[in-house]
């Protein structure tokens, strides 16, 4: 009699094969290339152009002024990962590559603070002398237009 039970051969061979299940919790795993995970903010590169906040659909980026003196203002920028869609627009639009979406996918938390990414950046205040120069330039532009 032909041995024709359906799937028997398949079942028997699969029994001795390696499981096709992910081994993740027992073996560490890397995210795929270009995976957009936890945000890293390089505050030293930021020039405070504000473009990242404008393009953020989730409204995940907030700034707080933490100190100010005559020369500079220091801001703290918070990326709220519970509000982020990981669209990477902020990073794509940043001309200074100050925002990076890393392959780190370990993004769980029991408190809201666990899912906030913070970084500081500085805005250097323009000196009055420096202010006069752009004004003159603008004037010359107007003249040209006329």
């Amino acid at each position: 009699m032909a041995f024709d039970f359906p799937f028997v051969k398949e079942a028997l061979t699969q029994m001795f094969k390696k499981s096709s299940c992910e081994e993740y919790p027992f073996k560490p795993k890397e995210a795929f290339p270009n995976y957009r995970g936890r945000i890293v903010f390089h505050g030293d590169r930021c020039i405070k152009c504000g473009l990242c906040e404008k393009v953020c659909a989730g409204g995940a980026i907030h700034n707080v002024l933490i100190s100010e003196d005559e020369e500079k203002e220091v801001y703290e920028r918070t990326f709220d990962l519970t509000s982020c869609t990981f669209c990477s627009y902020c990073s794509d639009f940043c001309s200074k590559s100050a925002i990076e979406l890393t392959g780190d996918f370990h993004m769980t938390g029991t408190k809201h603070e666990d899912l906030l990414v913070k970084g500081q950046y500085t805005k250097v205040k323009k000196k009055p002398v420096a202010k006069a120069a752009p004004a003159a330039k603008a004037e010359s532009c107007d003249n040209k237009a006329e």
Partner: peptide, 25 residues
């Protein structure tokens, strides 16, 4: 809320981690 799992959508590995945390809690 006890555990937040971030992501949009959350990656299955992240979900497993979140569930583990939830089981501990």
């Amino acid at each position: 809320v006890d555990v937040d799992i971030a992501g949009c959508a959350a990656k299955p590995e992240t979900v497993l981690e979140g569930l583990y945390q939830a089981a501990m809690i």
